[in-house]
Amino acid sequence: ASVAVIAAGTQGNIFATSALRSMRFLQILRMVRMDRRGGTWKLLGSVVYAHSKELITAWYIGFLVLIFASFLVYLAEKDANSDFSSYADSLWWGTITLTTIGYGDKTPHTWLGRVLAAGFALLGISFFALPAGILGSGFALKVQEQHRQKHFEKRRMPAANLIQAAWRLYSTDMSRAYLTATWYYYDSILPSFRELALLFEHVQRARNGGLRPLEVRRAPVPDGAPSRYPPVATCHRPGSTSFCPGESSRMGIKDRIRMGSSQRRTGPSKQHLAPPTMPTSPSSEQVGEATSPTKVQKSWSFNDRTRFRASLRLKPRTSAEDAPSEEVAEEKSYQCELTVDDIMPAVKTVIRSIRILKFLVAKRKFKETLRPYDVKDVIEQYSAGHLDMLGRIKSLQTRVDQIVGRGPGDRKAREKGDKGPSDAEVVDEISMMGRVVKVEKQVQSIEHKLDLLLGFYSRCLRSGTSASLGAVQVPLFDPDITSDYHSPVDHEDISVSAQTLSISRSVSTNMD
């Protein structure tokens, strides 16, 4: 405001104040949320940038038409019409005319000016109207692209899951042992070998009828009888010197917790746990005396209480009078009846079946994303299906024409109403129809010849004498029936064969 007042002088105070007050009108834009329509302006900018070359070309040609039209109309009207006294007036008329506004304040009066105005109007309006069409088509394409992008975003994750499931299904095939990355992934998420051994031990116990592997080994086996189970490696608790092959000598807290839970599941009659010990102070733990958990001091820290809870689970003690015997301790020893080589084939089979199920689920979810969402998608899918159906029908028609023997030239002739090819031409065609016709002709010829021969033979049998045999009239074959199959017997006289037959029969009768 200060700059405006200084620039306008003393009389500019009122002007500056009114100008600043008129800017209050811009507050109405906040009512229509114009300040939060950044996406709309961004869309407009992207459309203009995408079609910038077309817009520049249309505007450039339109500007050239405007300059030439205004100049030529000015030359034609400057002497006869006072409205075109300057080139600026003519340029104003050209702008209003070519933009199809047409105020009518300035019009050419001479015939030359009117002809020039009409010609440049028809030429220039087309170029001035091009930017509107370019922007409209650009907006339509952009909206369609955003629509497809939205659908693509919805299909991206199911497609990625389907590709991942397909690759993992491919890589978990037993015949592709060189693909090891997927197996490394499952090695990292699978439970430890100790848990798998416990699982298979329970399965084997159920197969043995509820007997433990130790009891199965204690059962008497006759001499020479084959053992029911192959000899396997035996594993004891981590306190002993022997372990399962492939295990580490260090046992983690999870393994100890699972070991304690498995020992508690063996039965309360074979294992008696004394009350857990509780320390009397955060600094020292008295293991010899058993106290109640309700006497825990409230001033303990979080670490002390955590250690106390761990001691409740991981440090059970047995009383002296209830101490288990050596046999019970041997039964409680952890027996590992299986090795990694025995378990891994079954584990890989389970993983393979899981990968198949996940692949089928991913495939079903991806197919669900291909379903249409709204009416536009339904129409688009219907149009695509219609085009596909037309293509299939056209391909089927082409194959039928190839089989029947109607080529493209014959199809055009039928469409024009011309006469089709004759039967002889159809026979000569190298097509399925021509071959079928040729075979039918040959079969008819053979059938006719057989009928003639059978009739001749029956007449010979009825006559009974050589004289009557020679008097029999043998009809000749019709050459038209034989089609294109020409037998060497067709052109010979059958009477010669009949005479030869009669001579042979007379000779045979004389010999008798």
Rank of each mutant, 00 (worst) to 15 (best):
P345A: 15
R256P: 15
A329V: 04
H486Q: 04
P488H: 15
S458A: 09
S483T: 04
Q442K: 14
T277R: 12
A206V: 08
E289Q: 05
I446L: 08
S262C: 15
T306A: 15
K367M: 02
Q499L: 04
S248C: 04
M433R: 08
S483C: 12
Q442H: 08
P275H: 06
H486P: 08
E321Q: 08
I354S: 07
H202P: 10
R313G: 14
W183C: 07
T349K: 08
A413P: 05
Y485N: 07
V347G: 14
Q286E: 10
E247K: 05
K438N: 12
H448L: 14
T369R: 02
P213T: 13
D410A: 14
P372S: 02
R168C: 00
Y185H: 06
R228P: 04
T349I: 09
R305G: 10
V437A: 07
E425A: 13
S495C: 09
I403V: 14
V427G: 05
D377A: 02
E330V: 01
M432K: 05
S269A: 14
P408S: 10
K376E: 02
C235W: 10
S495Y: 05
C244S: 09
E492D: 04
S242A: 11
D223A: 09
D401N: 14
R364G: 12
S284G: 15
E425G: 12
M251R: 10
Y457D: 08
F366L: 13
P408A: 05
D388A: 02
V232G: 11
S504A: 06
S468R: 04
K394E: 00
A177S: 07
K254I: 05
E285V: 14
T277S: 05
K419E: 10
Q442R: 15
K363N: 05
G224R: 09
S395T: 10
E492Q: 06
S284T: 07
Y485D: 08
L199V: 09
T172A: 12
Y334N: 05
G405D: 02
L476R: 07
Q297L: 02
K358R: 09
S502I: 06
T318S: 05
V472M: 05
R237L: 09
P421H: 04
F456Y: 15
S468C: 08
R258G: 11
M174K: 09
S395G: 03
S445F: 13
H202L: 05
S502G: 09
I430V: 09
T182A: 05
Y178C: 12
Q271L: 11
V472E: 09
S319P: 13
D512N: 05
S483Y: 10
I481S: 05
S325P: 04
P479L: 04
H236Q: 10
M433I: 09
E331G: 05
P293R: 07
E492A: 14
Y229S: 10
D173A: 01
I494M: 13
F200C: 09
P276L: 14
D480A: 04
M344T: 13
D187E: 11
L396Q: 02
S495F: 05
A219V: 09
K367N: 02
F193I: 11
E337G: 06
S242Y: 01
R307G: 10
A384V: 13
S333N: 10
P226L: 10
P408T: 07
A362P: 02
F477V: 13
T339A: 12
E337A: 10
P213A: 12
Q442P: 09
V287A: 02
D173G: 00
A362D: 10
I189V: 12
H236P: 08
I351N: 09
F308C: 11
S422A: 07
T349R: 14
P372T: 01
P475S: 15
D423V: 05
V436L: 11
M251V: 10
P475Q: 06
F243L: 07
C336Y: 13
V378I: 09
N303S: 03
T339R: 12
S261I: 14
S269C: 14
S240N: 12
T482N: 11
D304G: 15
L196P: 06
R176G: 08
P475T: 12
G288A: 05
D480G: 13
I343T: 11
R355W: 12
K315T: 14
R352L: 04
P293S: 12
R218Q: 13
T294I: 07
K270N: 11
S508N: 04
Q381P: 13
V507L: 03
I481V: 05
A384E: 09
R207H: 06
Y184C: 12
E195A: 09
C336S: 13
T500A: 12
A498T: 07
D322G: 01
I356V: 06
V340G: 06
R399L: 12
A197G: 12
T398N: 08
S311C: 13
S319Y: 05
S495T: 06
E425V: 14
S504F: 07
K416E: 02
E326A: 05
L357P: 02
I393N: 02
P316R: 13
Y382D: 14
D428V: 11
M251T: 12
M174L: 11
R256L: 06
K295E: 15
E215G: 05
I393F: 01
C235G: 03
R307P: 14
V203A: 11
R258P: 13
S506T: 04
G409W: 07
A323P: 07
T318P: 03
D374Y: 01
E380D: 02
V437I: 06
P293H: 15
P238T: 08
I430N: 10
K412M: 03
S299C: 12
L370M: 13
V203L: 05
P213L: 08
R176W: 09
V474A: 11
Y334F: 08
R207L: 03
P222H: 10
T500R: 13
F302I: 15
S188C: 09
A274S: 04
T509N: 12
A362G: 05
D480H: 08
K416R: 13
D480V: 05
D410N: 14
D423G: 13
